[in-house]
């Protein structure tokens, strides 16, 4: 038992402490600030991917939490646009055109999808007077 604890201290905790101590002793606020500024002002592929990932996550959360059909469609639109940003960013980064072509087509697809979705929403509103998707639960089991 004691040996085990000793081993844990020796091999895991003490090296970790040493690493943290090293990092703290070498910590340079100015250097970190400089790196941060560099990252913020020199756009690279990473920025676009992070933006797309954030948009995709916001859209995903929106689809899972929103109950209004319009809000759902907007959330899905956010997810599609995240894919679009990815396509364009990769296309620029790789120096190819096929990603940009895909982005243009995705825009058209998204427009068509929204048109159909809004038509369905209009039908439901005229018939039931609501577009809250939780109101539609006659089919279950």
């Amino acid at each position: 038992m004691l040996e085990t604890i000793e081993r844990i201290f020796d091999r895991v905790l003490l090296p970790c402490l040493a690493a943290v101590g090293d990092w703290l002793s070498n910590f340079d606020l100015a250097e970190m600030f400089r790196q941060g500024v560099y990252f913020a002002f020199h756009l690279s592929l990473t920025h676009y991917l992070l933006l797309a990932a954030a948009l995709f996550t916001i859209g995903l959360l929106g689809v899972m939490t929103r109950r209004n059909l319009i809000a759902l469609i907007i959330s899905i639109e956010l997810m599609l646009n995240a894919a679009n940003i990815n396509f364009v960013a990769f296309s620029q980064y790789l120096g190819q055109s096929s990603g940009s072509v895909m982005a243009v087509l995705v825009l058209a697809l998204a427009a068509a999808e929204v048109a159909v979705g809004l038509a369905i929403g209009l039908y439901l509103y005229r018939r039931n007077g609501t577009i809250d998707v939780e109101q539609f639960h006659t089919l279950r089991g």
């Binding site: 990769f90 990603g99 369905i120 539609f136």
Partner: peptide, 26 residues
Amino acid sequence: GEAALKYFISGAFASALILYGLSLLY
């Protein structure tokens, strides 16, 4: 209406997942 609504929401959501996955693959 309910059938179309559920089909549309799941289908559009699936398209978004597919396209994002495809963008990473590309």
